[in-house]
């Protein structure tokens, strides 16, 4: 009995002393922190991805509270709804920002881009990039080691073993930009999601001259400039043998897409083109074929997003005019 009593008293005393010390310390060394920082941090997703450009969610919350304005600040993970909540906590107006998504600008799958050498180094794009031009003749394209996949915290980008290229899961992608940073070849671009998730972009970053690029990859941009000419909105620029579509200017008219001789321009998540009944059979075949390419692409990228139309039906319709299909299909 005595023993138990001693144990209880002594432990209790130690506890009491410790509690007093803790209490004094917490009062004496307390650092004042704006309570709103914690409130803001609460509504943030706490993924600590760094996509906002700040070190983690708390860093972002801190910046939001201290800045006094939310202009130019966006949590890519939470998007507009979360920013609205942050705005209401701080009594500020939420900055406007378009939803973005990561876009892989290389379509050089194994069949499009024949391998000329075999890489045997460490499985890392950064190392492969430092080693040489890559397994194919294209020194700009995807290396396929998956640094972007490793960098993604949202399970939104995966290697497709068939094509050897990464594919973005648009539902999960938060456009945090981690993959873009990880890619040593700067293939991945953060682009606006676009209306109804529709986007038109040049799926190539090869700056070699046309002949070299064409030899290296069937779907490379050869810098021919046809798309630049056809664009009614001056959205396409050609620099260093490479076309680029400015998302801010592009109105998604898709005029450039069938024009590209290499099939490098990709229109994503569009419904397949309807075959227009026109008198000129030549143009029709081209358009049909182009539509087929679109349909095929929508199929291959498996964009199970907002594509409500059924591309398969369209494909079966398209099957007849097998005349002059663009190169991209081959």
């Amino acid at each position: 009995m005595n023993l138990i009593l001693i144990a209880v008293i002594s432990l209790g005393a130690i506890g009491l002393v410790a509690a007093v010390i803790l209490f004094v310390a917490s009062k004496k060394f307390a650092v004042y922190e704006d309570p709103r920082i914690a409130q803001v941090a609460e509504v943030l997703p706490q993924a600590n991805c760094g996509g906002c450009g700040y070190p983690g969610c708390n860093g972002f919350a801190d910046a939001c509270v201290k800045a006094g304005s939310l202009e130019g600040k966006l949590c890519p993970v939470g998007g507009q709804p979360v920013m609205a909540k942050v705005a209401s906590i701080l009594g500020l107006e939420a900055g406007t920002a378009e939803p973005m998504v990561a876009v892989v600008r290389c379509n050089g799958s194994c069949e499009h881009r024949p391998h000329t050498t075999q890489y045997d180094g460490a499985v890392s794009c950064a190392v492969a990039h430092a080693t040489y031009g890559g397994e194919t003749g294209c020194a700009y394209g995807c290396l396929g080691c998956g640094d972007c996949v490793a960098a993604c915290q949202f399970d939104a980008i995966h290697m497709n073993p068939e094509t050897g290229l990464p594919e973005v899961d648009e539902e999960k992608c938060t456009a945090c930009g981690a993959c873009k940073k990880a890619c040593p070849r700067n293939i991945i671009e953060i682009r606006p999601k676009g209306k109804n998730n529709r986007r038109v972009y040049v799926s190539c970053v090869n700056k070699d001259k046309g002949a070299i690029a064409r030899k290296a990859c069937e779907v490379s941009c050869i810098g021919c400039g046809k798309c630049v000419k056809v664009c009614p909105f001056e959205a396409i620029t050609l620099e260093n043998n490479l076309a680029y579509i400015d998302p801010a200017k592009c109105r998604l008219c898709r005029k450039c897409e069938p024009e590209c001789p290499q099939g490098t321009i990709i229109a994503k998540n569009f419904p397949p083109r309807k075959p227009k009944v026109e008198s000129d059979p030549g143009t029709e075949t081209v358009k049909l074929a182009a539509a087929k390419v679109v349909a095929l692409k929508t199929e291959t990228v498996k964009a199970e997003l907002s594509v409500t139309e059924t591309p398969k039906v369209e494909i079966s319709k398209m099957e007849e005019p097998k005349g002059k299909t663009p190169k991209a299909e081959a």
């Binding site: 460490a122 890392s124 190392v127 430092a130 080693t131």
Partner: peptide, 12 residues
């Protein structure tokens, strides 16, 4: 282990 591959990357 491909140590030097990574060391070169780090050095660069």
């Amino acid at each position: 282990r491909p140590m030097l591959d990574y060391i070169r990357l780090g050095k660069g």
